[in-house]
Design a protein around this nucleic acid. Structure first.
Length: 472
RNA sequence: GCCCCCAUCGUCCAGCGGCCUAGGACGCCUCCCUUUCAAGGAGGUAACACGGGUUCGAAUCCCGUUGGGGGUGCCA
């Protein structure tokens, strides 16, 4: 099996899924997983672009078996194949037809009459493969797709296609056919969007006398967006590594990507070791044939499950990069975070959400969310805060004590527990949602809590609470 | 236009002729738990696109219709 991406500067989600399924197929049958970089376009052979692919695959944990092949390094073999086809009369030189002259070609940019002109190499002239039922001795090309069953095309519907550009470079069609044979690829697993190039590929292999008898094809369903369209660079988030930067774990990505078009038998969708477990049960023929919507809601759920499964140390370690971009990153401490990390872990779906849950621990002053403030600071809040401030000043400094005593206070004052804790929470953390309040206060310390409660209480006295714009 | 592929809850996956009054998961809703929000637990909502066949029997097989998608490059 092989994965053959073109270097575009990022690894596309769909490509990542194709790579994964190739990898799974290979690992499930003890086969070989090879990489071939399709850089026949000279602009696409920049080393840094290729490196991105390796880094993305490594992030996913997909290992390959031999040194990757650069298609650009195989140009001689491709040229040789083109020459062979030319010599056998299965290919011919073709001139471009200018826009103004396309009436005679039925609007086509090339002229089928070139087939018999016996043209030689020349300026602007490309080589086309001759899709000719008589010459090839067939009227149909087809194959038995591992996922879709029999697929066939009438030769009459396939046009003569370019195998060598005017600039001398081989095209994807010929390079593909030649290199797959060279690499002894037995299973071609790729996206559904390549179904229609398969007949060309088959014809070329036949024309070149390359054995294709052992070849198996499997065309994966496309991954689509909410509009049911193929994921596009323009309007969808298609770069795999961007998901890493948004706080998704690689195991979760692998897990979710595998669920697009396939499901582990038994229905246990969330798998904490997909790379270890899935190869045992994966069969390429089980992949289904209709397109799959890339559902970030479910991705988030899967990611959340994987985050919760992380050990405390791992969670902290993998969260760390996400603190670096915070304005308070220089005040961050591992030790402080470790005290609350477990509580954060059950509340986030992506690692990127982590800083938002603990910023108040590291900020000199909590950033007050005005909506939370307005909601929490009911008319009784001033009195409640006064009572809490008195208590906080002398209560034993333990979260359990703070909890018990605050709740007792709420009861004494005839307030509901929920409403009573809200002003305290906003005063101390700036928000109405967050990790458990009393643990947070215990970590912050008595003096700091008193200071923040005092600040909030003072603001209430100003009477400008609901009209004052938020600070810088 | 032409060629090709696809069609089960809103979404993903099961189902490969009887076990289906269609199952699981995400989402959504309700309840429980509860210092907020989560997590967790218990329920609920919701689908075989349509029409013809084949068959004792069809979500499952065949044909057609409709709908969706992909391709139609001297990109890959």
């Amino acid at each position: 099996m092989r994965f053959a991406p073109a270097p575009t500067g990022y690894l596309h989600l769909g490509s990542a899924r194709t790579a994964l399924f190739n990898w799974l197929a290979a690992r499930s049958v003890g086969g070989t997983f090879l990489l071939r970089v399709e850089d026949t376009d000279l602009e696409r052979s920049k080393p840094e672009l290729i490196d991105v692919i390796y880094r993305a695959l490594e992030w996913l944990g997909l290992d390959w078996d031999e040194d990757p092949i650069r298609q650009s390094s195989r140009i001689d073999a491709h040229q040789e194949a083109v020459d062979g086809l030319l010599a056998a009369g299965l290919a011919y030189w073709s001139d471009p037809v200018p826009e103004s002259d396309r009436e005679r070609t039925g609007g086509k940019a090339w002229d089928i009459a070139d087939r018999d002109r016996g043209l030689g190499p020349g300026e602007g002239r490309a080589v086309r493969f001759r899709v000719d039922a008589d010459a090839l001795g067939v009227t149909e090309v087809g194959w038995d797709d591992a996922i879709r069953g029999p697929i066939s095309f009438a030769l009459a519907n396939i046009e003569d296609f370019v195998i060598r550009r005017a600039d001398g470079s081989p095209t994807f069609f010929i390079a593909n056919a030649v290199d797959d044979a060279h690499m002894a690829v037995t299973d071609v697993i790729r996206g559904e969007d390549l179904i229609n190039v398969t007949p060309k590929y088959l014809l070329l292999r036949q024309g070149l006398g390359l054995d294709a008898s052992a070849l198996r094809f499997a065309h994966l369903p496309l991954i689509v967006n909410e509009q049911r369209k193929k994921l596009s660079k323009r309007r969808d988030d298609v770069s795999l590594l961007d998901y890493r930067d948004r706080g998704y774990l690689s195991e979760a990505m692998v897990n979710y990507l595998a669920l697009l078009g396939w499901g582990p038998p038994g229905g246990e969708e969330v798998c904490f070791d997909p790379l270890g477990v899935f190869p045992e049960v994966f069969r390429i023929g089980d992949v289904n044939d209709s397109s799959a919507f890339f559902d970030t809601q479910k991705l988030k759920f899967v990611n959340g499950e994987h985050i919760r499964h992380l050990g405390a140390a791992h969670f902290a370690e993998r969260s760390r990069p996400f603190f670096e971009s915070e304005p308070w990153s220089d005040r961050y401490h591992d030790e402080t975070f470790a005290l609350i990390a477990g509580e954060v872990q059950t509340r986030v779906e992506t690692l990127a959400e982590v800083p938002g849950y603990v910023d108040f621990l590291f900020l000199a002053d909590p950033e007050i969310d005005e909506r939370s403030w307005d909601k929490a600071m009911v008319p009784e809040a001033a009195g409640w805060l006064d009572a809490v401030i008195d208590g906080v000043a002398e209560w034993p400094w333990q979260s359990s004590e703070l909890y018990e005593r605050t709740m007792a206070l709420a009861e004494t004052l005839g307030a509901s527990r929920k409403k009573f804790q809200a002003p305290v929470r906003v005063a101390v953390t700036g928000r109405s949602v967050g990790p458990p309040l009393f643990e947070s206060m215990a970590i912050l310390g008595r003096d700091e809590c008193l200071r923040r409660l005092g600040t909030a209480r003072a603001r209430l006295s100003d009477g400008t609470a609901t009209t004052e714009p938020s600070g810088p």
